[in-house]
């Protein structure tokens, strides 16, 4: 349902808006909402990737490209043979069927767009961060404080990702930093194409810091490179210290792990050393910063990290 007016906007459209833009909204969305949600339980029967008007760049569909040199000879075949009901498949003459080599990376479309974003960021000297976490770990709070503290020193731009609300964009807007909100509706992650569009809308300046707050989810965003310079995973001590091994891909693909809400350590069972050990097993390059956005403890280490990496 539409988060702004509750009119039942189709959930499979991505919306990218600046704070305040919702007032134009009325019942005249830019997007049509002619179809109802087919929304039984968890089955997202639509998917937003349908709805972009891509220019498919098919030049890469040349069979000879993209052969990953890696290790395919060593693989084990436990073919998950999946027997769909082929009612009609055997009536046909199979002699016409033949194999076509494909050898394409499944994520290549996103990865290529991400590389394009990355090139753009590098050319404009934009330092970009992709902030990922479970819902409520403190990403928006961290951003609010960081912008307030460092805004004389760095020019911040923010892209907020959320399934339906404008709340986070409104919070960032209050700090004075330019922000756009991407609403993914049924989508559980941001992708490179959304970032591409959001960056244009945001008109990100040269030599600035672009912070992307991803949709609160530790699974799906891990697969989608946005073209960011660094990926930062935030966990808070109110979560389990085994998060890193429950969601290994997120920790595997991140550069920095922020352990937030350390002010609550006396009241919870979270073992910081254990969490770090688990995370290091998944990714031995991972850096750690423990902090409390609330009390400010440890925030200086985060600011130092930003200055150093920017």
């Amino acid at each position: 349902m539409c988060g702004t007016c509750g009119c039942g906007q189709s959930d499979d459209q991505i919306t990218i808006r600046k704070p305040g833009e919702e007032v134009h909204h009325e019942h005249n969305h830019d997007y049509n909402h002619e179809h109802e949600h087919e929304h039984d339980d968890d089955k997202h029967s639509h998917h937003h990737h349908h709805h972009y008007k891509h220019d498919h760049d098919h030049t890469e569909m040349n069979h000879s490209h993209d052969h990953d040199k890696e290790h395919h000879d060593h693989k084990h075949n436990h073919d998950h043979d999946h027997h769909h009901e082929h009612d009609h498949s055997h009536e046909h003459d199979h002699s016409h069927s033949h194999e076509v080599k494909v050898e394409q990376d499944i994520m290549q479309k996103n990865d290529k767009l991400a590389e394009r974003n990355r090139g753009y960021f590098e050319a404009k000297e934009i330092f970009s961060l992709n902030l990922v976490s479970s819902p409520g770990s403190g990403k928006t709070s961290l951003l609010e404080h960081t912008i307030k503290e460092l805004k004389e020193e760095m020019k911040f731009f923010v892209i907020e990702g959320d399934q339906q609300t404008m709340n986070d964009a409104n919070r960032i807007n209050a700090t004075g930093a330019p922000v756009v909100q991407i609403n993914t509706w049924n989508g559980c992650h941001l992708d490179a194409e959304m970032i591409n569009k959001a960056v244009k809308k945001l008109e990100v300046a040269e030599k600035s810091v672009l912070i992307i707050e991803n949709v609160g989810n530790l699974v799906c965003p891990s697969l989608f490179d946005l073209g960011e310079s660094k990926r930062v995973v935030v966990i808070s001590v109110t979560e389990g210290d085994d998060k890193p091994i429950k969601y290994p891909n997120m920790f595997m693909s991140s550069n920095l792990c922020i352990i937030n809400k350390t002010d609550l350590l006396p009241y919870v069972d979270f073992n910081v050393e254990k969490a770090k050990e688990y995370a290091t097993r998944v990714n031995h390059h991972l850096e750690f910063i423990e902090l409390s956005v609330k009390t400010g403890e440890g925030m200086d280490k985060w600011y130092e990290w930003l200055r150093k990496n920017k």
Binding site: D68, S97, H98, M107
Partner: peptide, 10 residues
């Protein structure tokens, strides 16, 4: 790895 290796078509 996440890859489409081949397809069989008719």
């Amino acid at each position: 790895e996440l890859k489409v290796k081949s397809i069989i078509i008719e």
